[in-house]
Design a protein around this nucleic acid. Structure first.
Lengths: 360, 360
DNA sequence: TTGTATGCGTTATCAA
DNA sequence: TTGATAACGCATACAA
């Protein structure tokens, strides 16, 4: 005979015993399913309260197959943009009475794969993923195949099989470039944190992040429309920290024809960039123009206020979570939602040094 | 006879059947416990792989009593400070192979209470809480009583019964005030988001957030040391958004003797404050000095760069998680860790308008 | 080393 | 409406 001791916690059996009813009845009363007389319900409730009974959600999940929690996989919680997204997600989750299991991958594909596995093992009811890679996505599709709904947010993967909620940033980015061109710029550099897999960037090259792809495409489109040559040397990647940024700006400024305008892919990049520019005594916008592709509250407080692209991050989180719950709760999915960011003109863009209206 | 169908997922029984061994042997082989011949292990592993078997972590948890996840309860993920803390927590958790269940309470006590309950129901192995209230903490103590380890972070509660990892901000805050006094300021206002329970603030009043208490204490101490009168009217609360801030600054500046220096309790408050000052055409630091009690990267980029208190937020997260795992893994707890922030002098502090060295 | 039989704390099924 | 009991998927005590 096998004998094992319990966890010492109050179980439904204890409640049943105290209420003087069967385990089944107690369970029904507590779970609010099946039929129970109000009399029994009363007794059970009372007993539960007296014993400070709390149901074991794990045991419940194992039976129902629902864990009442969703997994959220993201690269960097520290990035304020994602902080806002997560806030949106978590608000919606709370309203649906779901918990959020958060996995931070540090943009590591391995960590992402592991996170997805573990979350599936823990039987989350659905997954919200901001994929690190556009191409390496088998683990994500696996989740869907395993019957667990997945909604991608902020970034898409190369096979359009899943629900996605993302920003339509190609358009605004074109708009950014247009306004830069309008101001007289011809040499415009783009700076991103993404680490390139190849040594050098070539236009049209496949990038492993849909957002960066969108931005680069937006830039190229605008340049082409204006008949401006696309110089691969003006697209710079791997600006992961201040040192890298330092190096990168140095290289850019030593080009035979250096850029007159700099586009930072997000607010963290912009922070490093502005800091480096300041140290190098490059004045914005007189010496060089700057735009950042993610607006943050401080943008209007720095000197000069930075022209930036506002992205409704909180909304993105809300929508993504909403789409996921639509699928979890059975209604049809197949949603590909685009949110529209918008350009906020401030004072960090001016004509390039030495530019005369005549040049136009 | 009751017959019920499973979830349709591959279970250990399926693996066992395919491997031609007993369920127990298969379980042992997969779980890596008990004794299994390498032969059987081989067979089971193969079968598992072929069936794409993944263990059900919930079922495992129900047996082991360990869920391999910790709960994190925090007021506002959107605040970059907490973003950094969470990053620290989640990095440590990942190294211990634990998941993080994140609950954002929006600084609502009710939501906090519910979050703790739900997390306990889901059998998290431990709890990391940044309490919304210093006094209303029965739900927190309940968790400890239920045998689930709790470590508080950033904020303490009024009964010193639990492990806490927090910043020693009273001292730095005194230091901030000292340097303000050194610069010639006598009228120094403090602005916080905390909503006061009473209508008016009176010095020595119990505040419901340990961090705010520490700051107010630090301010009062420094003022007393310098023999400067403590004016309750210079302590302002409820600066939750830009409108409130607008109103609040208006009131302060219309005082018969308005403040010459403003201390913002965190970076979000400072953002609103600086924005309102700018709109009101008050120049920092010529018209008014500003210090913020949480340094963020943008602080050195605004004009003027803001003198602020750097708090090692990531470390706080790391330490808190570390302390929790110490307790979860059985080693002794009882840790009360203090991290030391430090004052970063920049250019937002100057003598008050009209101040002459003679006044000193 | 292996298989059998329970146990974990729920929910679900059946007969009464 | 009720109670007895199987089932969920895994871990484990015990006997073989």
């Amino acid at each position: 005979m096998a004998r094992r001791q319990g966890t010492g916690e109050v179980t439904i059996s204890d409640v049943a015993r105290r209420a003087g009813v069967s385990k089944a009845q107690a369970a029904r009363a507590m779970g609010g399913y099946g039929s129970v007389s109000s009399e029994v319900k009363q007794l059970v409730m009372q007993a539960a309260q007296e014993l400070r009974y709390r149901p074991n959600a794990l045991a419940r999940s194992i039976n129902t197959g629902k864990s009442q929690s969703i997994g959220v996989v993201v690269g960097d919680v520290e990035n304020p943009y994602f902080g806002q997204v997560i806030r949106g997600i978590s608000d919606v989750a709370r309203h649906h009475d779901y918990d959020v299991v958060l996995a931070n991958t540090g943009e590591s594909l391995q960590d992402e794969e592991k996170a997805v596995k573990v979350l599936l093992d823990k039987r989350v009811d659905g997954l919200l993923i901001c994929p690190t890679s556009r191409s390496a996505h088998s683990h994500i599709l696996d989740a869907e195949r395993a019957g667990r709904p997945v909604v991608l947010f902020d970034r898409d993967i190369s096979v359009p099989a899943l629900d996605v909620v993302q920003m339509s940033i190609a358009e605004v980015t074109s708009q950014v470039i247009d306004s830069l061109i309008d101001a007289g710029h011809r040499r415009i550099a783009y700076i991103s944190t993404l680490k390139l897999s190849t040594r050098k960037f070539v236009p049209g090259q496949e990038l492993d992040l849909s957002t960066v792809t969108q931005r680069v495409d937006g830039i190229c489109l605008a340049l082409k429309r204006s008949g401006i040559e696309i110089d691969p040397g003006l697209f710079r990647f791997g600006a992961t920290d201040r040192e890298a940024m330092q190096q990168l700006v140095e290289e850019l400024m030593h080009l035979s024809s250096p850029p007159t305008a700099l586009v930072a892919s997000d607010s963290l990049v912009a922070l490093d960039l502005l800091s480096v520019l300041r140290r190098r005594d490059l004045r914005v916008p007189t010496d060089i123009s700057v735009v950042m592709l993610d607006d943050q509250p401080w943008a209007e407080l720095v000197e000069p206020p930075i022209t930036s692209v506002f992205q409704p991050a909180y909304d993105l989180g809300e929508q993504a979570a909403g789409a996921l719950f639509e699928r979890i709760e059975g209604t049809t999915g197949g949603r590909r939602i685009w949110l529209t960011p918008n350009l906020v003109h401030r004072s960090s863009v001016a004509p390039p040094p030495g530019w005369r209206e005549l040049d136009r």
